[in-house]
């Protein structure tokens, strides 16, 4: 008996289903000179769009393709190293 393929209601994980970076009204800009590498922005980002890159001088980087600009990162940063800058 050959395996029959059915049309099933199944889905697979995919990063970037929507280009949510276009939703953004304000953009988080990190002043890396002020950053104390506490990782609070990474921890509290609701979108998984802040990445910790230990090898980089920047240490934390924002993925602007998908960051929605909610501003939680700027709000939780203990040293106010993140500012929200209006887009365009």
């Amino acid at each position: 008996m050959s395996e029959i393929s059915h049309i099933l209601p199944l889905s697979k994980p995919k990063e970037g289903i929507s280009r949510t970076g276009t939703w953004r009204l304000k953009k988080p800009v990190i002043d890396h000179s002020k950053c104390v590498k506490c990782m609070m922005c990474w921890l509290h980002c609701p979108e998984s769009t802040i990445d910790v890159v230990e090898s980089s001088d920047k240490f934390v980087e924002v993925n602007y393709d998908f960051c929605k600009g909610c501003g939680v990162c700027a709000n939780v940063c203990p040293v106010k190293a993140i500012s929200m800058v209006p887009e365009g």
Binding site: E15, I17, S18, T20, W23, P46, E47, N63, D65, F66
Partner: peptide, 11 residues
Amino acid sequence: LLPGNPSCPGC
């Protein structure tokens, strides 16, 4: 939770 999901900002 992957980037590009349709949650509201600040969800």
